[in-house]
Simulated assay, not measured.
Amino acid sequence: MPIRIPDTLPAFETLVHEGVRVMTETMAVRQDIRPLQIGLLNLMPNKIKTEVQFARLIGASPLQVELTLVRVGGHKAKNTSEEHLLAFYQTWEEVKDRKFDGFIITGAPVENLAYEEVTYWNEMQQIFDWTETNVHSTMNVCWGAMAAIYHFHKVPKHALKEKAFGVYRHRNLSPASVYLNGFSDDFQVPVSRWTEVRRRDIEKHPDLEILMESDEMGVCLVHEKRGNRLYMFNHVEYDSTSLGDEYFRDVNSGVPIKMPHDYFPHNDPTLTPLNRWRSHAHLLFGNWINEIYQTTPYDLQEIGVDRR
């Protein structure tokens, strides 16, 4: 089954052009099944680009998924029009009485701030607590993952001397994990961050299991069984051009930045990068959605009941 999103969302035409199965709201109501309810809390500045990236991965599932776009109410977006936000987004306050099978919390460009200095941190804390009772499984990404693992376990983030930036080899540490079903022993993952969480801090918490790791970039993916949460510290969802867009943005702005590691062919920024992580990105999200489908209650109102 395809992903169900509003017919007029800009991502709709992009996904159709890429061959992703997209279902209109009109078609969806004809099917007598319960679609999986997945929310996307989009904290990224370019919300439209981020919508496409995650909708592409969710839409590859054989299950019908209804995607709800969510934003924090305590922060005004500077790079997305108010018309787009009003047309397609709901604030967390507007959805907090709902239950979701899955919920994605994206990264945000606030890495160099202490969590408590982020203007919407109080709302983020409420959202993290809310996921324990209203969400069956949460996928936290990049800053969203660092913020979540700090909120729930006080695992700190550490500033890096220079930006971790490029495409790096990662190792599959748990081939038997349902989330890594079909993964090869090693694979490529895009990395773009100024901070990191460290293995020794995670290992203090026996309920946290490290699933992916890089010799150069450290911990990539962590699973928490009790809370049914995933913490993805890198960017498997990135487009082929995302790292290049960040690189040229900084170069044109005069911001000191190294060329992304192992990204441009022959380290030549005039050449088109090859996407070497797409298949594993689809595998990860497909495995996540399948695990949600296998374990979530049919009655949405039963979600979170056993965690209270």
Rank of each mutant, 00 (worst) to 15 (best):
R4V: 14
E13G: 15
E18Y: 02
R34M: 15
P35Q: 11
I38K: 09
I38D: 13
L41V: 05
K47I: 10
E51L: 04
Q53F: 07
A55E: 07
A60Q: 13
P62F: 01
P62D: 03
L63I: 13
E66Y: 14
T68C: 03
T68Q: 09
H75K: 03
K76W: 13
A77D: 08
A77S: 08
T80Q: 00
S81M: 04
E83D: 07
H84G: 08
L85M: 07
L86F: 08
Y89L: 04
W92H: 02
W92P: 02
E94L: 13
G102I: 05
I104K: 00
G107V: 01
A114T: 05
E117W: 13
E123S: 12
Q125R: 09
Q125D: 13
F128G: 04
F128I: 00
F128D: 03
W130F: 06
T131H: 10
E132H: 10
H136Y: 01
S137Q: 15
T138I: 07
V141R: 00
G144F: 03
G144I: 04
M146Y: 02
F152A: 09
P156F: 10
G166H: 05
Y168N: 01
R169M: 15
N172D: 06
L173F: 03
L180T: 11
G182E: 11
Q188Y: 12
P190W: 02
W194L: 15
E196C: 11
V197E: 08
V197L: 06
R200K: 14
K204A: 11
H205Y: 08
L208P: 02
E213L: 12
M217E: 06
M217N: 01
G218Q: 11
H223I: 08
K225H: 14
R226M: 15
M232G: 06
F233C: 01
H235N: 12
E237H: 00
T241W: 10
T241G: 10
D245I: 09
D245A: 08
Y247R: 06
F248D: 00
D262F: 13
F264H: 02
F264A: 06
T270E: 14
T272I: 13
P273M: 09
L274H: 09
N275M: 11
H280K: 12
H282C: 09
N290G: 10
E291I: 10
Y293V: 14
Q294H: 12
T296L: 14
T296G: 13
P297C: 14
Y298R: 09
Y298V: 15
L300Y: 07
L300A: 07
Q301A: 09
I303R: 01
V305D: 02
V305S: 04
